[in-house]
């Protein structure tokens, strides 16, 4: 098993493209190392991307924020301006695992692990985040909702990896929120996750919204019907009920050790509504 820690994007791409067996990108390692220990994966090559500057930086870009794929959750939490701009994304990233896991886990890893229950992914999708991919044929941008196709299945081409994410500029009176359901208070994988991003006008009417649900389908969902259900409303009771119904209608979950189908569908509606209320509250006060 080889280990390489290139210092440039090109270097990483070259290694990944030239690999003749299973090559894995190592960011925080909080999923990869567990899978290696459990013999789920036995990579021939590990490419550690943490020594690449672009993967480790949080910078402003055209009024938005660019976040390196290997920035840890703990670092995001300590980034006050980012937290101010995208509280939902940061709180979602901070729900991945324990404090210890926060010290390592990254947005890039959370997405590329390919789990529909990844906490940060619904928040990124609700935020309209775009992933920057680098590969043998150069770089390209892909909306986050298009990166993951199904469990452990990504839209990445051979030799490609995620370098960073771009969060768009924040319009005034807009905010996001993320909630997940777990049986304990910490340490569990999301049974349901809901990310909501909202913009309101001066009168408090929702002008734009994105709603994303995790752990209720083979991939994280961007639920346009749920957004439509609240655009034009002030998130009154009826709008909340429409939102919850649309969220529930979008779910296609499995029954498993973490929750029943019925439970996931019910709770998806509850969380979408609760997350929207938090986002609304935040948006109004900006």
């Amino acid at each position: 098993m080889r280990y390489e820690a290139p210092e440039s994007v090109q270097g990483a791409v070259a290694l990944l493209a030239a690999a003749n067996g299973d090559a894995r990108v190592l960011a925080g390692g909080t999923d990869l190392l567990v899978q290696m220990r459990a013999d789920v994966v036995e990579p021939e090559l590990i490419v550690d991307i943490k020594r690449i500057r672009e993967t480790r930086a949080v910078t402003q870009e055209n009024g938005g924020w660019r976040i390196g794929a290997a920035v840890t959750g703990a670092e995001l939490k300590e980034h006050a301006p980012l937290k101010q701009a995208w509280p939902g994304v940061v709180e979602a990233a901070n729900l991945i695992g324990s404090t210890q896991v926060q010290g390592r886990a990254t947005l890039g890893g959370n997405l590329c692990n390919g789990s529909p229950a990844a906490d940060s992914v619904p928040a990124l999708i609700a935020a309209g985040a775009v992933a920057k991919l680098a590969g043998p044929h150069g770089q390209r941008d892909l909306p986050v909702e298009d990166v993951m196709l199904g469990p452990r299945t990504l839209a990445l081409r051979p030799g490609e990896f995620v370098v960073s994410f771009l969060l768009p500029p924040r319009p005034p009176r807009s905010a996001d929120a993320y909630l997940r359901f777990i049986p304990r208070t910490e340490m569990d994988i999301a049974v349901v996750g809901a990310g909501v991003s909202i913009a309101v006008d001066g009168a408090g009417t929702i002008t734009a919204a994105r709603v994303s649900l995790g752990a209720v389908a083979p991939r994280v969902l961007l639920v346009a019907e749920a957004a439509q259900a609240i655009i034009g409303s002030r998130l009154d009771d009826a709008a909340q009920e429409r939102l919850a119904a649309a969220a529930r209608a979008a779910c296609r979950p499995i029954d498993d050790k973490r929750g029943t189908t019925e439970f996931r569908v019910d709770v998806a509606g509850v969380l979408a509504r609760r997350a929207a209320l938090i986002a609304m509250d935040r948006a109004r006060t900006r």
């Binding site: 390692g29 190392l33 567990v34 220990r37 695992g97 010290g103 390592r104």
Partner: peptide, 25 residues
């Protein structure tokens, strides 16, 4: 698997599970 914290150390001042870090890193 990073679920119990008994292997906690700090790495450049950051709290981590040492079972989730490769030695070569």
């Amino acid at each position: 698997s990073g679920d119990c914290g008994a292997c906690s150390v700090t790495l450049d001042g950051r709290l981590v599970c040492s079972c989730l870090v490769l030695g070569c890193e």
